[in-house]
Amino acid sequence: MAGVTFALARPLAAPRARRRLDLTGWAFAGPATLVVVGLSLFPAVWAFFISRAKWNGVAPGVPVGWGNYQRLVQDPDLLAAARHTLLLTVLFVPASIILGIVVAIALNQKIRLIGFYRTCIFVPYVASAAATGILATFVFNPQFGAADEVLRRLGVPAQQFLESPSQALFVIVLIALWGEVGFTTVVYLAALQDIPRELVEAATMDGAGRWRVFRHVTLPELRPVTVFAAVWQTITAVQLFDLIYTTTRGGPLNSTQTIVYYIYELAFQTQRLGYGAAAAYLLFVVTLLLTLGIIWYSRRRGSEVF
């Protein structure tokens, strides 16, 4: 009889124990979940409703439907900002990936002080981007900057750098690479160390040189990581704001005004919050499509990473 009672009690005790564990888990995760939802999901939904209104943040908003989105398509300033963002992305993403692979291969060697070198590469990434931008304004200053001083010693004419409409965006890309190449380096370094040594040894024993091993063994093994790095760096380039804010403020002559900085000007300088929210949602859609496009292309090439 006691055995029957114990057998009946076990199915009843199991759900209770499971509920107790679930409640304990939610007790720990619940507050953080509420904070994340409150600081991300709710503002995103609210911004969508703002994007369908004409609102300056003070007076009551006037509903305009999809009028803000229709105006965006014909906005010449937004189109110019989109061109600048596209150029920045095209220059930044491949360069950061190539530099990341090259530096990671160099740091994957067994040399003295390798830990120190790896730390030096990663420090610019963890440093504040705003601080990096402020420092860059001194380095590339046409009057007393270190960059022009080096050019003078090499016999090269001094350049305007961040004060030149034709050079400023390229300098921004260079500064961004300085700050972001540490990330791609660490990612590729971890991927290189995960490549099975047997594959490299087998290719070497078959007579493959270093270049063939790199091309036919290393690069295919790094393909999933490359997809991840491309997605991550694309989002980073499209959403770049802090460097531009601390260096050029979109100048000179709006030559470095990207979409994110243009949204900042719309929302917080001209107080066109509805129009700025519409531009932000348009940027979200473009970023999502770019990300999905990269993932779709990588899967067609046989790289499963997401």
Rank of each mutant, 00 (worst) to 15 (best):
Ala95Arg: 02
Leu41Ala: 10
Val150Leu: 14
Glu163Pro: 00
Ala104Ser: 09
Arg215Ala: 09
Phe144Pro: 08
Ala82Asp: 08
Ala14Trp: 15
Leu169Ser: 01
Val200Pro: 01
Glu163Cys: 10
Trp26Ala: 01
Pro124Val: 06
Gln233Cys: 11
Ile263Pro: 02
Pro165Gly: 06
Arg10Asn: 14
Leu154Trp: 10
Phe241Asn: 04
Ser128Gln: 01
Glu149Pro: 13
Phe48Lys: 11
Trp55Phe: 12
Phe183Leu: 04
Tyr275Asp: 12
Phe228Thr: 03
Leu292Ser: 10
Ala208Cys: 14
Gly251Asn: 04
Ala202Asn: 03
Tyr245Leu: 11
Arg299His: 13
Ile121Leu: 10
Leu72Thr: 09
Thr236Leu: 07
Glu163Arg: 14
Ser96Leu: 08
Gln239Lys: 09
Phe306Cys: 13
Phe161Arg: 11
Pro31His: 05
Ala229Pro: 01
Ala59Ile: 05
Val64Trp: 00
Ile105Trp: 09
Thr5Met: 15
Val139Cys: 11
Val173Asp: 03
Leu189Lys: 11
Tyr117Met: 07
Pro60Glu: 01
Glu180Asn: 07
Ala279Val: 08
Ala81Gly: 02
Phe144Cys: 07
Ile105Asn: 06
Ile259Trp: 03
Leu282Trp: 09
Asn56Gly: 07
Thr246Leu: 01
Arg300Tyr: 14
Ile101Tyr: 00
Leu88Gln: 04
Arg10Gln: 13
Met1Asp: 15
Ala95Cys: 06
Ala7Arg: 15
Leu34Ser: 08
Leu253His: 03
Ala53Trp: 00
Pro76Ser: 01
Pro124Lys: 11
Gln271Gly: 02
Thr85Asp: 01
Ile294Met: 13
Ala44Gln: 08
Ser164Met: 05
Ala47His: 02
Ala131Leu: 08
Trp66His: 00
Ile263Arg: 02
Tyr281Lys: 00
Ile50Asp: 07
Gly274Phe: 01
Leu240His: 02
Leu78Ser: 05
Leu8Asp: 07
Glu265Gln: 09
Ala278Met: 08
Val213Cys: 07
Gly251Gln: 05
Gly276Asn: 05
Met205Tyr: 06
Thr248Val: 09
Gly100Cys: 02
Leu288Thr: 14
Ala168Asn: 06
Thr247Ser: 03
Thr256Lys: 14
Leu189Ile: 00
Lys110Tyr: 06
Ala106His: 05
Gln143Thr: 11
Pro60Asp: 02
Ser303Glu: 14
Pro252Ala: 06
Ala280Ile: 08
Ser40Pro: 13
